[in-house]
Design a protein around this nucleic acid. Structure first.
Length: 402
RNA sequence: GUGGCUGUAGCUCAAUUGGUUAGAGCACCGGUCUGUGGCACCGGGGGUUGCGGGUUCAAUCCCCGUCAGCCACCCCA
């Protein structure tokens, strides 16, 4: 006897599917409001699509196998390589900017935990062919608007925004040796979950000056004014200026509401391909994993062998968002009852009920009825339990069922 | 992949610190109720106590293994 789904995989009973549908409807509605158009790709891809950029280590985290044609394949763990490939193939034919979104089911062979399964649905929104920060602003505003459309407020969640180029400039201004940068990023990424003393010790081991360590362990608190005062020349100064423009754009797109945004240089996204502004959306209580994350990956298309094209995107999974919405009481999709429960009396032959049901169904009404003769009171009870919106008897067509 | 905690009906939990046929609420099924707000009452099905070994006269309870869930690493989506 089969007991349940494979570890990390989910059965969607009607209630769970209704919840998932609620989330996906919100994704689709808001993405369309932002003029993104939907696309999809194959759930199975050549393994090489993922190893080329991430290296062989990633194979341990993939559902991969050799197919009957001796091809090394993998279930897609993320959508970005697929969209990059699809766009690269038709780079010259597509009208720019390309504004696409998709809601793929993604797979990852890892030990599961809360908020992290072996499969999830993830909204992917990508904007390709535009280098200006206006595109970055459009992306983040879209992500925030989805969260807002789900019923959450800026008291519940915050978008933490960063730019690794600015972080690098700050670190250099603090005297961090270039050779130590990669290591320092890793330490910054874990600052939140690591005791300060431990982080400081690790930084010392990387030959980071003591004064710099003090500032690095509180890098999350560095505000925009400090960034401006520390980075005053060179390419980084231009990036700082653009970053300021970016934040103003996002605020404008959110109707002037800046409460959703926060500069946080401790956001160092792991993926190797991010090249500019990055962001992550979190619940403010810190109870859940990141709701969404994304950023700019201007070099990815070229690295996959296509024509170079500036690009950026974000992903938002259904698992963490669903957990947060449920915790806030915002995940209560209406039960899917029929429009009409059609009741026959004991004297009505079933065919009479069926003929009437057929007539109503042809009129696009959803109709349920008792599949075997039952008392009227029993049918009424069944109608209520099923969530039918209207109770109609053959002899008397006006009984309401709330 | 590593370590820790947990595992009784579909769900939430019981079962006098090993002791007879493992119980309840909700849910589900059937019946009664000629009736107002998903009401009440009666009845029923459903568990090899995750699975497999071991200790014992006797195991839901103790030990080992295994599987699954949760948590922390790892890694990030």
């Amino acid at each position: 006897m089969f007991k349940g789904a494979l570890p990390g995989f989910r059965d969607f009973y009607p209630q769970e599917l209704a919840e998932r549908a609620f989330i996906m409807r919100t994704w689709r509605d808001v993405a369309r409001r932002y003029a993104f158009v939907e696309y999809d790709g194959p759930p199975l891809e050549p393994l090489e699509l993922y190893t080329r950029k991430s290296g062989e280590e990633i194979v341990g985290q993939l559902y991969n196998f050799v197919d009957k044609g001796d091809r090394e394949v993998a279930l897609r763990p993320e959508m970005t390589p697929t969209v990059a490939r699809m766009v690269a193939v038709r780079a010259n034919a597509l009208r720019k900017p390309v504004r696409w979104f998709s809601m793929p089911q993604l797979f990852r062979y890892e030990r599961q935990q809360k908020g992290r399964l072996r499969e999830h649905y993830q909204l992917n929104v990508d904007l390709l062919g535009e280098a200006d920060v206006a595109a970055d602003a459009e992306l983040l505003a879209c992500a925030v608007d989805i969260v807002r459309a789900s019923g959450l407020t800026s008291n519940d969640v915050v978008a933490r925004v960063s730019d690794r180029r600015i972080l690098q400039a700050i670190l250099e201004s603090l005297g961090v040796p270039p050779s130590a940068l990669a290591g320092v990023y890793g330490i910054i990424d874990k600052l939140e979950r690591t005791p300060v003393a431990v982080s400081a010790e690790k930084l010392t081991a990387l030959d980071v000056p003591a004064e710099a360590i003090e500032r690095i362990v509180t890098i999350a608190n560095v505000d925009f004014a400090e960034v401006q005062s520390r980075v005053t020349s060179g390419a980084a100064a231009t990036q700082v200026e653009e970053f300021g423009r970016y934040m103003r754009y996002v605020a404008a797109l959110l109707g002037g509401d800046e409460s959703w945004l926060r500069l946080d240089l401790s956001i160092v996204r792991g993926l190797a391909y991010y090249t500019g502004i990055v962001f992550e959306v979190f619940d403010r209580s810190g109870e859940f994993r990141a709701i969404a994350g994304g950023g700019r990956y201007d070099t990815l298309l070229a690295s996959l062998g296509g024509a170079g094209m500036p690009a950026l995107g974000f992903g938002m999974g259904d698992v963490v968002l669903g957990e947060l919405l449920r915790a806030k009481g915002l995940l209560t999709p209406a039960p899917a009852g029929s429009d009409i429960w059609l009741a026959g009396t004991e004297h009505d032959p079933l065919e009479r009920v069926m003929r009437e049901a057929a007539r109503l169904r042809a009129d696009d009404r959803s109709v349920e009825y008792a599949l075997r003769p039952q008392s009227l009171s029993r049918q009424k009870k069944a109608a209520q339990a099923s969530g039918a919106r209207e109770f109609v008897t053959l002899s008397n067509d006006d009984g309401r069922n709330g």
